[in-house]
Amino acid sequence: MIYLIIAIVLGIIMLVAAVIAVYNKDLKTAIIAAGVTSLFASVLYVLLAAPDVALTEASIGSGLTTLIFFYVYNKIRRNNAQE
């Protein structure tokens, strides 16, 4: 029963974050929202008895992907500022 509540709440949060990631005008917010989606996907994997996948998603999906996104965005921003 408690699993069901957790799954429903996590699903709502992930859907909201995904919509923000697609629709928000601000690119920084969109990147962070994509990070939130994978963060809660990782909790959902723990719930679905897949700790291996959860570990991978937590370390790669939310950690390194966000880092790479921000590096690239920073580079693009700096190129724009030089114009």
Binding site: L39, S42, V46, P51, A58, S62, T66, L67, F70
Partner: peptide, 18 residues
């Protein structure tokens, strides 16, 4: 709990990046 340990560590890096 291994997942939680990795989780705690990586949220730190995410916040610092932003």
């Amino acid at each position: 709990l291994d997942v939680a340990v990795v989780y705690g560590l990586l949220s730190f890096i995410g916040v610092i990046v932003v």
